[in-house]
Nucleic acid binder design. Sequence first.
DNA 1: CTCTGTGCAAAGCGTTTGCAAACGA
DNA 2: TCGTTTGCAAACGCTTTGCACAGAG
Lengths: 140, 140
Amino acid sequence: MKNFTKVLKQHNLKTTPQRLAILEAVYKYGHISIDTLYIEIKKVFNSISQATIYKNINIMINSMLLFEVKLPNEKSVYEIVQNKHSHFLCNCCGEVTDIYIDTKQMIDNISKEYSFTINQTDLVFSGTCKKCKDFNILKN
Amino acid sequence: MKNFTKVLKQHNLKTTPQRLAILEAVYKYGHISIDTLYIEIKKVFNSISQATIYKNINIMINSMLLFEVKLPNEKSVYEIVQNKHSHFLCNCCGEVTDIYIDTKQMIDNISKEYSFTINQTDLVFSGTCKKCKDFNILKN
DNA sequence: CTCTGTGCAAAGCGTTTGCAAACGA
DNA sequence: TCGTTTGCAAACGCTTTGCACAGAG
């Protein structure tokens, strides 16, 4: 993932410097909140307005180019749609990490037991990441 | 779960008719959004204000009496804290169902592989429930 | 009786909208 | 050139707050 001009074209969206800046920031951060996105882009693109950020985030979500990750006790963060994965939220440093787990068996079980057809899974695990654990040991 | 006066006491919250009405509605619905909650309570308790609903929902969440379930593409719903479980959201009828799956193995695997300490899991599966599937077959 | 909770209205805040000007294709 | 996007400011809608009064313990 690098050529965002191409990505925008593939989603039938016109290329603008604002859109490229948004995608670059989301890509760089991996997961980013609206507020951070605005602050971050403002640094290199001072004229950008919040309205532009909001409009484009919504357009890109509707075009399935971005995905909103809803987190417990936190504001949502946004990521570029790539492969399916789950998330881990560190309650200590706030970082969101992509995690890859095989959900096939679990989905099969639920589908069978409850007679549901499942076509999306949003899994968020929270706790403490390695860095924060190590740091807490040092501190005490 | 039935004696909400007792439940409130256990959480060091004073009993008021408003709080009982809120808990009864949440209990009755299983999962309820703020808007539905207000409309529903207003029917039987006309003088209640939205501010009261909001204040109490927040107090009860902080007291771990209520839990907020964040759903993809939907407003959050609230439920009474009981045993650990996951959720299924039907994109067709909007209903939220509690589902019980064993997450121990999955959490162990993630903990080991990523060196995370996991103390909360928020799992939401979405798709179509049995009722909606059956109804769609009839329709076609 | 005291302290907390309620209801109202106002304020706050994040998000959306309308519109003229700028820009991409 | 034509339709889309941007930036601004205003509007919007959900949520929180301040305050006087009512109610719980």
